[in-house]
């Protein structure tokens, strides 16, 4: 088994506001790691550090053995240039709370854009892959629609297909269902379950306790910029040890 994500003592501050105060995390290949925690605890910030959308102030993050955002040469850290950061991000897919589909492109163009422009892959090959990904998330019939014509749940599934089109080793989900109407949550979670079953390594920030219990291999509970408790989801959810975890779970369950 290889370590897909390794975070060592990660610190992040916005100005004087310390948001992450020493996060440690290991996610093995093929594992689904669920991240729980109250609002403002730094979950999104941590996720964004993993693909270097935010620069960390201290600590290390490695994805598949690659140091994210930096390079170690002669015992010194050098910042990676824009190209190298972009290359690292290519193998890390990310799905956002508010979908962030490109509204001026059709669904199919959204999915094809990055493989065609970033990896310069052959267009007809990408097209076939995009079509089959869209079929996989149940949106084969909406290829030519614009995102504005889809429901929230459909948009989020397109966003998942768009990230998968880059063939990532790791997928990051930042509360993928919290902007959705309750009846649309299920379809997105089902897509994510399929993905987990196919062996994708995933880090999922979510408030869906059911999903964490059913699909998660590990769970971390964050509060105030630190990991308060971690372990197998069933255990943590059934018998939380820390008072903060108990208080949080009693609210969301």
């Amino acid at each position: 088994m290889t370590e897909m994500v390794r975070a060592d003592n990660v610190h992040k501050a916005f100005g004087s506001l310390e948001v992450l105060k020493g996060i440690d995390l290991v996610v093995q290949q093929g594992e689904v790691c669920c991240v729980l925690g109250p609002s403002g605890s730094g979950k999104s910030t941590f996720l964004r550090c993993i693909n270097h959308l935010e620069k960390i102030n201290a600590g290390r993050i490695l994805v598949d053995g690659d140091l994210i955002g930096y390079q170690e040469r002669g015992g010194k850290l050098h910042e990676l240039g824009e190209k190298d950061v972009a290359r690292q991000r290519q193998s890390i897919g990310m799905v956002f709370q508010r979908f962030n589909l490109f509204p001026h492109m059709t669904v199919l163009q959204n999915v094809m854009e990055a493989p065609c422009r970033v990896k310069s892959e052959n267009k007809s090959v990408v097209r076939d892959r995009a079509v089959s990904l869209l079929d996989q998330v149940g949106l084969g019939a909406k290829k030519e629609n614009y995102p504005g014509q889809l429901s929230g749940g459909q948009q989020q599934r397109v966003a998942i297909a768009r990230a998968l089109a880059m063939r990532p080793k790791l997928m990051l989900f930042d509360e993928p269902t919290s902007a959705l109407d309750p009846e649309l949550v299920g379809e997105v979670l089902d897509t994510m379950k399929d993905l987990a079953r196919d062996g994708m390594t995933m880090v999922v920030v979510t408030h869906e306790i059911g999903f964490a219990r059913e699909v998660g291999d590990s769970l971390i509970f964050m509060d105030g910029g630190v990991v308060v408790e971690q372990g197998p989801p069933r255990e943590v959810i059934a018998n939380p040890r820390e008072t903060r975890t108990k208080a949080f779970l009693s609210k969301v369950l």
Binding site: K83, A86, R89, Q90, F96, E113
Partner: peptide
């Protein structure tokens, strides 16, 4: 942000 996350320059 979404575009950067896809590895676009």
């Amino acid at each position: 942000e979404a575009a950067h996350a896809l590895g676009m320059s």
